[in-house]
Design a protein around this nucleic acid. Structure first.
Lengths: 224, 224
DNA sequence: TCCCGACAATTGCACCAGCATTACCGGCTC
DNA sequence: GAGCCGGTAATGCTGGTGCAATTGTCGGGA
């Protein structure tokens, strides 16, 4: 097994490397995000262990970078920043697991094993629907090849719907897609976005429409 | 999303159910392992939340039981037993995640989402009957490959029947499939749903029909 | 064969949760 | 301060669902 450790505290890193290599695990060690990026381009890892506080930035930003490069390796975030809010940020930032420091090496190993049990995740490609092409990674939409700008929240709704194009998306999933779990939604903000999005799509005759499944959620459909 | 909560502390269970059902999540609640087993046989869940200390045994033993029955639903263990040793036991026991009590509901939700991000159980069987294809996991029905929308309760009836296609489904089982075990039914609500479902299936000439076995239950049959 | 009681099917009705739309307004940016 | 974005709330609307009354069907016993 090959593992990438992104961690700037030398002591911890060395301890980990000592412990893990005893178990036959190959470890590459990066102290900075830049190095980590380089390494991950050159090698294929089974797991990435990622510290959040790094000399050249917040570790979490590394996850989107990876995914954009179609690297699906599971990421476990290791960090002292371990209150619930931070953990939620981490998980929703794309981490597969989140482990607060200090931790025991054998717990870490257990989590590594748990993460590896999971089947690999999918790559997200471009989604074509109606006259639109949607890039969920770069958060862009083009319409007949020319850029199509949307307000941020409407964009997020559209992307969430497009990702499961033709299938119903639960209302709660949409909410999760549009809102940080901190900012809770009062009132019908989501409905308002849907309504505005619909109007916009209709105005441009985008070739798609948003349908409602009462009591369940919404779905995006190609128009016939 | 459908979720099985296995937890014997009523207070916690109620709080969770209140919070989660607001997010459009359907929750079934079991207080004992035995009930959990029964429920998991009758339904397909997206996630299982599992307490360890249960009146009829250690919760962890439930995981092998599930896997042996080829149920791949991810399991998140919730428990007060939260020292590292216990956590390792949990994760190596097959849990996909492990969350110590007390926890915040939004952290739980974040972990649920993290676990669901993997498109794991795509393996789930689709049920084909007549011109319809029924996906009991996503609660969707397609008819000749185009989506076929049904009211929620009728959908649940149809799925329950389809799962035992050609075999009789007890009236009581149907009721359990459609209603939370809390909300009891007065009158003949179930009959009404059956009636409406029949009408709808006939109108679309779906190629299936719902038969009654007097005094016992109903069954779904391919039309000849 | 007919009758009767029990169970099942159907349908109209009424209620209300959930949805759609729109106007308004505060905040942010340029 | 003009304009866009986005959250809130008021309003009207719709469709799903529970209920009950009515009608239909089955099957056993006289």
């Amino acid at each position: 097994m090959r593992l990438l450790l992104v961690e700037d505290e030398k002591e911890l890193a060395n301890a980990l490397m000592a412990a893990l290599s005893k178990q036959g695990i190959v470890i590459d060690h990066a102290m900075r995000l830049a190095d980590a990026g380089e390494l991950s381009r050159q090698n294929t890892y089974d797991v990435i262990l990622l510290d959040r506080r790094l000399p050249d930035g917040e570790g979490l930003t590394f996850i989107p970078t990876l995914r954009r490069a179609a690297v699906l390796t599971p990421v476990i975030v290791l960090t002292a920043r371990n209150d619930p809010k931070e953990r939620i940020e981490g998980l929703d930032g794309g981490a597969d697991d989140y482990l607060g420091k200090p931790f025991r090496v054998d717990e870490l190993m257990a989590r590594v094993r748990a993460v590896l049990r999971r089947p690999a995740s999918v790559v997200e490609a471009l989604i074509v629907v109606g006259r639109m092409t949607i890039d969920p990674l770069n958060l862009t939409v083009t319409m007949d090849k020319s850029p199509f700008d949307l307000p941020r929240r409407e964009l997020l709704v559209l992307i969430a719907l497009a990702k499961r194009q033709g299938k119903t998306v639960l209302r709660s999933v949409l909410e999760a897609a549009v809102y940080n779990y901190e900012e809770e939604i009062k009132s019908n903000a989501l409905d308002a976005h849907i309504s505005r999005l619909r109007k916009r799509l209709a105005d441009c005759s985008a070739g798609v429409s948003v349908h409602n499944i009462r009591g369940v959620g919404y779905l995006l459909k190609d128009e016939v």
